[in-house]
């Protein structure tokens, strides 16, 4: 049955007709979701949908920004100039991802300044993986391979998210993330085929990042209260556990190529269910890290606040200069 062409319903034109707009808007929104089509910034959308998106997109943006720190920690010590260049380009990409994501969140009506302030005030979350320290050069490999790998597994389905600007931002981000994952893999490959010390370094990094990377998919499905609604809204496409299993399946083969082992005694493929079974993860640790008790939470936040505070006079100067130039232009006209 061919549906009549949908006319978008703009967000409130005037307060007087708000309830009529809401009804028409809800109907439009419901059909867009049912047809698995896209909501755009000017369309009407339920407040809860808007709020969920702002929260999710800004958390993702904050994760990119905080996630620059553990890798920036190794730029000045990168062991070859080529690796240094690759790492610098990567961390720079992450800042770029943060920018697109803040822009996507801004289309929902919350300015970047406000989102940034939420991060600085500790009111907004970011991915807890970045509260783990990057202790060795091999961590640059493990972060690329496992952390970016988990991020890709999470984010590829988000390219089809029902909110247009988010989905489109994710397309570009995923392309770059897959580059990063390959670079991480390449670092580990070089180490695992290097000296015994280098191989030990690589194994140690994988041992430390495996479980935290698996936790990046979020709590188990039976303990993930927001997932159901996000799936109903076509923001999320697969459950946390589905994505986690899919990711484990991916890395098992890659670990063999690397000649490294995954630190999981229970890892096996279950022929009956066609799924990968992994060990029970320490969800208490996950909760602790989210609650601020991770190894680097306070360090990461202190660094972000310090950069923000040290930059205040620069931003004020740029603002004052722009105002001056505008006034001069107006005066000259």
């Amino acid at each position: 049955m061919a549906a009549a062409p949908l006319q978008p319903v703009p967000a409130h034109a005037s307060p007087a007709d708000s309830s009529a707009t809401d009804q028409a808007g809800q109907a439009y929104f419901d059909r867009i979701i049912a047809e698995d089509s896209r909501i755009e910034p000017k369309d009407w959308m339920p407040e809860a949908y808007r709020k969920t998106l702002v929260r999710q997109i800004s958390q993702h943006a904050h994760s990119e920004i905080i996630g620059m720190q553990p890798e920036a920690n190794w730029i000045t010590r990168a062991p070859s100039l080529k690796r240094k260049a690759i790492l610098m380009a990567k961390v720079q990409d992450e800042a770029g991802h943060g920018l697109y994501l803040y822009s996507a969140a801004e289309t929902l009506g919350t300015p970047r300044d406000v989102l940034n302030q939420q991060l600085l005030d500790g009111k907004a979350k970011y991915s807890s993986i970045f509260n783990y320290p990057a202790r060795s050069w091999a961590d640059m490999g493990a972060i690329g391979w496992l952390v970016d790998g988990a991020a890709i597994a999470n984010q590829v389905p988000l390219c089809r998210a029902s909110y247009g600007p988010y989905g489109r931002a994710m397309v570009r981000i995923c392309k770059e993330e897959s580059f990063h994952q390959r670079q991480g893999f390449e670092i580990l490959l070089e180490l695992s085929h290097g000296t015994p010390e280098q191989k030990r370094m690589a194994q140690d990094a994988v041992d430390r990042f495996y479980a935290p990377a698996l936790m990046m998919f979020g709590p188990p499905d039976d303990d993930s209260p927001n997932s159901k609604q996000s799936m109903a809204w076509n923001i999320k496409r697969f459950s946390n556990d589905e994505l986690r299993q899919r990711f484990v399946g991916m890395i098992v083969e890659q670990a063999k190529v690397l000649g490294l082992t995954l630190p999981d005694p229970e890892l096996r493929f279950d022929e009956e269910t066609g799924q990968w079974i992994h060990m029970e993860l320490d969800w208490q640790e996950f909760k602790d890290v989210i609650a601020g008790r991770g190894p680097c939470n306070s360090q990461r936040m202190a660094r972000r606040r310090e950069a923000h505070e040290n930059g205040a006079w620069v931003r004020e100067a740029a603002h004052a200069y722009a105002e001056k130039k505008m006034q001069q232009k107006a005066g000259a006209a």
Binding site: Q69, M88, Q92, A95, A307
Partner: peptide, 20 residues
């Protein structure tokens, strides 16, 4: 390269990183 993740704004993390 030390400025990356410490710039006065995100755009400068990118710009200084780019120059480096």
């Amino acid at each position: 390269s030390h400025w990356i993740s410490r710039g006065p704004e995100l755009e400068e993390d990118i710009a200084l990183g780019n120059i480096a």
